[in-house]
Amino acid sequence: MATQTPAAGASRIGSAVVAGRGVMRALRARGRRRQRQEEILLELLRQLTLMTEEIHRANLIQQYRLTVEQMDQAIGDSSLASAGSTLTGLPEGKRRQMIFAHRQYGNLLLAYRVRACDWDELIGHVRVLCRNAVFAEYWDRTVEHRRSLPADSEEARVGAAVDIILEELADDPDEWWIVGPSSGEPQP
């Protein structure tokens, strides 16, 4: 029968403890490394999301720039104004006014969509724009154009706010600075 001395058994246990600690350190290091990799991945995803949003805003601006160029041509050339407008029975000067009113509204909508202004700033600008009789007429004449917008779209929400402002202005035009939706962006 083989006998072990107590010192030999203790050294094996000591070696196992040291080895176990080493394994634990390696696992913790691997865990920290994995956690760091996940943090880096999350940061990259956040940056990618921001970049995607920025590209979307740049595309909106470019599309609006093209639309404005066409509207400018239509304002300057009555034959193009007739070709680009769905409003019928308007004299040339009135048609140009409607195109310009559309351009003003589109500019405010774009500013909001690319986050150049927030909801409260947009409503402030729209309040001023709605005081203009030409804009109010444009809005009334184009009500059918807005019916096809998805109800949860930004443009539909802004359009609903314009409707409220114009209704309230009709009731009390002297209180124009407080008409319209309350502060804070509406939820879709």
Rank of each mutant, 00 (worst) to 15 (best):
M1E: 10
M1C: 05
Q4P: 01
Q4L: 03
T5N: 08
P6E: 02
A7S: 03
A8G: 04
G9F: 09
G9E: 08
R12T: 10
G14L: 13
S15E: 14
S15K: 13
A16Y: 07
A16F: 05
A19D: 08
G20S: 10
R21G: 11
R21S: 11
G22K: 03
R25A: 14
R25D: 09
L27G: 07
A29N: 04
A29K: 09
R30A: 04
R30P: 01
G31E: 05
R32E: 06
R33Y: 00
R34S: 07
Q35L: 06
Q35A: 15
R36D: 13
R36E: 12
R36S: 07
E38G: 03
E38A: 06
E38N: 01
I40E: 09
I40D: 08
L41C: 11
L42R: 12
Q47F: 08
Q47K: 07
Q47Y: 06
L48W: 11
L48G: 15
T52F: 11
E53D: 06
E54C: 06
I55M: 15
H56T: 13
R57D: 12
R57S: 10
R57E: 12
A58V: 14
A58F: 08
L60C: 10
Q63P: 03
Q63K: 09
R65P: 00
T67P: 01
T67H: 10
E69H: 09
D72Q: 04
D72C: 15
Q73S: 08
Q73C: 05
Q73T: 05
I75N: 08
D77C: 05
A81D: 02
A81T: 05
S82L: 09
S82K: 10
G84A: 04
S85R: 03
T86K: 09
G89E: 04
L90E: 08
L90G: 05
P91G: 11
E92F: 07
R95A: 00
Q97G: 08
Q97E: 14
M98S: 01
I99E: 02
Q104G: 00
Q104T: 04
L109M: 09
L110D: 08
L110S: 14
A111P: 07
Y112T: 04
V114A: 01
V114F: 09
R115C: 12
D118N: 15
E121M: 11
L122D: 02
I123C: 04
G124N: 05
G124C: 11
H125M: 15
H125K: 11
V128A: 13
V128R: 15
L129C: 06
L129Q: 03
C130R: 00
R131K: 14
N132I: 00
V134F: 03
F135M: 02
A136K: 03
A136Q: 10
E137Y: 00
Y138D: 04
R141F: 15
T142M: 10
V143K: 12
H145N: 07
A151L: 06
A151P: 09
D152T: 13
E155Y: 01
E155L: 02
E155C: 06
A156S: 13
A156W: 04
R157V: 07
R157I: 08
V158R: 05
V158D: 09
G159K: 10
G159A: 12
V162G: 01
I164F: 06
I165Q: 02
E168A: 01
L169R: 03
A170I: 01
A170W: 01
D171E: 14
P173G: 11
D174M: 00
W176I: 01
V179F: 00
G180A: 03
P181M: 07
S183G: 10
G184V: 02
E185Q: 13
P186K: 07
P186A: 12
Q187H: 12
